[in-house]
Design a protein around this nucleic acid. Structure first.
Length: 110
DNA sequence: ATTGTGACGTTGC
DNA sequence: TGCAACGCCACAA
């Protein structure tokens, strides 16, 4: 089962460059399941089971909001990690999300 | 096999 | 322009 949908998500998530962020939908589209954006987030929840360190903090929803911060244990963990990447977070929202947005379907294709 | 859920996305009002 | 509801696919029980 080395090609599970979840593994696919983990692989893309690991490829997210430092200081960049992406959206669940972008990953979902890249995986070929644009309507399964929710699965991407769910995969992140299971990212712990993946056995590998997945920078889920770099993955946010389409609005650039840290929707999954609640799943990091502490709601501050995600924002703190993003700030450590040089990203500014205000009210759980990423500033300049448009510039920091990293599209796997585009970056990986180029 | 069926039901329920889920860290989203889109469309409608 | 802002908020609400629906839909969607994939996985777990």
């Amino acid at each position: 089962m080395e090609k599970d949908f979840f593994q696919r998500v983990y692989d893309v998530a690991e490829q997210i460059p430092f200081g960049r962020v992406t959206s669940y939908g972008a990953i979902a589209v890249f995986l070929g399941a644009a309507r399964s954006a929710r699965m991407v987030g769910w995969a992140m929840n299971n990212s712990s089971t993946c056995g590998r360190n997945i920078p889920a903090h770099r993955v946010v929803n389409r609005k650039g909001l840290l929707t999954g911060k609640n799943h990091f244990g502490n709601t501050d963990t995600m924002s703190q990690l993003l700030e450590a990447e040089g990203i500014t977070i205000v009210d759980d929202q990423i500033i300049d999300f448009d510039k920091l947005f990293w599209d796997p379907a585009m970056e990986l294709t180029r």
